[in-house]
């Protein structure tokens, strides 16, 4: 069942002279993880902003076409009610703290307070999220004094606590070190297993190969390719549209080009090792 339907969407920022999105049509199924990929300036963040309703509610400009969240047009959703439907996390850890709370516990509670939830229930939910994301040791710290990775996990917690069905996560790890990246992806996997619909912009293609169900490749504002992760990441054409491919699929393609077909194009390290083993066995047998 689809939760988001986008049909013939075009959008132009104010004071800009060309469309940032051109005739985009995408269907998002419930409970799946979609990765948005493509070169910078291709429209990934713009599409995220549309799905979260910041376009057209905050960024003005010219929006054409249809964007339906659970069947209701994005223009008709209020910003408040949408925050419980679509959660949004982006790349800058520093601007994602509310700026008014002096400890992590209250920081995470901020969204629920804004929704007017009963304080006892808020405490319960915040406790739950803190345990789930294993950030109990941050509970009493000042959000301003956290590291980038810690801030990003608190930002995720602050959104997750509001229990949105859809999570839009725009380059959550681009300013983090490998350890921070790993921890953020642990949370993303957790959310996927809980049945959340996730729309993820991420440059680290190996991680996408591992976690994404579907890939939407945007190039110069248009959907250049879309399909299952395997379909896209084993297709050489993706390179011409500015996408990166995992080193393992590049390896498989190179092997094929040199007349050493592995049978299939591997996506992950595990698959690559497996494929090479079978291929070598075949070679020995022949």
């Amino acid at each position: 069942m689809s939760i988001i339907t986008i049909k013939n969407l075009s959008y132009q920022y104010p004071i800009s002279e060309s469309d940032a999105l051109k005739d985009v049509s995408v269907t998002i199924e419930r409970g799946k993880l979609y990765a948005l990929v493509g070169a910078n300036g291709g429209g990934k963040t713009t599409l995220c902003n549309v799905i979260r309703g910041f376009i057209p509610h905050f960024y003005k400009g010219d929006l054409r076409g249809e964007v339906l969240i659970e069947g209701k047009d994005i223009r008709e959703w209020g910003m408040g009610e949408l925050s419980q439907k679509v959660g949004y996390v982006f790349q800058n850890p520093f601007t994602q703290i509310s700026g008014v709370k002096d400890n992590v516990f209250e920081e995470i509670a901020f969204g629920l307070e804004n929704l007017g939830m009963e304080p006892g229930l808020i405490r319960e939910k915040v406790d739950q999220v803190i345990r789930m994301l294993e950030i109990d040791y941050l509970r009493d710290k000042n959000p301003f004094e956290l590291s980038g990775g810690q801030k990003q996990r608190v930002a995720l917690a602050s959104i997750i606590v509001m229990e949105p069905d859809v999570l839009v996560i725009d380059e959550p790890t681009s300013q983090l070190d490998p350890k921070g990246t790993e921890e953020v992806f642990k949370i993303i996997e957790l959310m996927k297993n809980k049945g959340k619909t996730i729309i993820l912009v991420e440059h680290k293609i190996e991680l996408i190969a591992e976690y994404a169900d579907y890939i939407i490749l945007l190039n110069e504002g248009e959907v250049a390719m879309q399909g299952s992760t395997r379909e896209i990441l084993t297709d050489e054409r993706a390179l011409t549209f500015g996408a990166a491919l995992p080193q393992y699929s590049l390896f498989g393609m190179e092997m094929r080009r040199r007349g050493m077909d592995l049978g299939s194009i591997p996506l992950t390290e595990k698959e690559a090792i497996e494929a090479v083993k079978t291929w070598m066995k075949k070679g020995v047998n022949a």
Binding site: S83, V89, E113, P119, I122, R123
Partner: peptide, 19 residues
Amino acid sequence: RVLTLESRAFSANVKKSSI
């Protein structure tokens, strides 16, 4: 920051609570 606040329902039209 506007995006952050909107994501946290800052402009929701209900009476806020406080823990």
